[in-house]
Computed example of a mutant assay.
Amino acid sequence: MRKLSAFVLIAAFSSTGLSMAQPARNYDDKGAPPFKVLKEGENPPLDANDNFVIGPKYVAAPERKPVEGVPQGKVTQFEFDSKETKLFNPGIARKVFGTVDPKNPKTLIVETHTIDYKRRVGVYVPAQYKEGTEAPFMVVHDGPGAAGGYKTILDNLIAQKRIPPIVLISLSNGGGDAQGHERGKEYDNMNGDFATYIEDEVLPRVEKNCKVKLTKDPEGRAAMGSSSGGSAALIMAWFRNDLYHRVLTTSGTFVNQAWPFDSKYPDGAWGFHETLIPKEPKKPIRIFISVGDKDLLNPNVMRDNMHDWVEANHRMAKVLKDKGYEYQYLFCRNSGHGIGNAQNQFLPHAFEWVWKGYGAKEGK
Rank of each mutant, 00 (worst) to 15 (best):
R183Y: 07
R183W: 04
V206Q: 01
N209W: 02
Q179E: 12
N191L: 11
G184P: 02
A178I: 06
V212G: 14
E201N: 11
D200K: 13
Y197L: 09
A195V: 00
M190V: 07
E199K: 15
F194A: 05
R205T: 08
C210M: 08
L203G: 06
R205Y: 05
Y187D: 10
K185V: 06
H181L: 04
D200Q: 13
E201P: 12
R205C: 07
I198M: 11
K185W: 10
F194V: 09
D200C: 02
G176W: 04
K185T: 05
G175Q: 15
E186K: 01
D188T: 15
R205G: 07
Y197G: 02
E199A: 11
R205V: 05
E207Y: 05
G192W: 07
V202D: 15
E186S: 01
D188M: 14
A178K: 09
T196K: 13
K211Q: 09
G180N: 00
E201Y: 14
D193L: 04
E199Q: 15
E207C: 05
T196S: 11
G184Q: 04
G175L: 14
R183N: 07
A195H: 00
H181C: 14
E199M: 05
C210A: 08
V206L: 07
G176D: 01
E186C: 04
V206S: 02
Y197N: 06
N191P: 07
G180Q: 03
D177C: 08
V212E: 13
G175S: 11
K211C: 02
A178G: 02
E207A: 13
E186W: 00
L203D: 05
Y197P: 04
I198L: 14
N191R: 08
G176E: 07
M190W: 10
K211E: 05
L203E: 09
D200R: 13
F194H: 07
F194T: 04
D188K: 12
V202E: 13
K211V: 03
V206I: 06
A195R: 00
E182S: 07
R183F: 04
V212R: 15
E199P: 06
E207P: 04
C210E: 10
N209F: 02
T196M: 12
V202Y: 14
A195N: 00
D188S: 15
G192A: 07
R183Q: 07
E201S: 08
N191Q: 11
K211M: 03
G176L: 03
D200S: 06
Q179G: 08
Q179S: 12
D188C: 15
E201M: 10
Y197A: 05
Y187M: 15
L203T: 05
R183C: 02
C210F: 14
L203P: 10
G184L: 04
D188H: 15
V202S: 12
R205D: 10
M190R: 08
A178C: 08
E201K: 14
D193A: 06
A178N: 11
K208S: 04
Y187W: 12
D200I: 02
G184E: 01
R183G: 01
P204H: 10
G184F: 02
E186V: 02
V212C: 13
K211N: 12
V212F: 11
N209V: 02
A195Q: 00
L203W: 09
H181I: 02
V212Y: 12
L203N: 05
E186T: 01
H181V: 03
N189V: 05
G176R: 04
K185M: 05
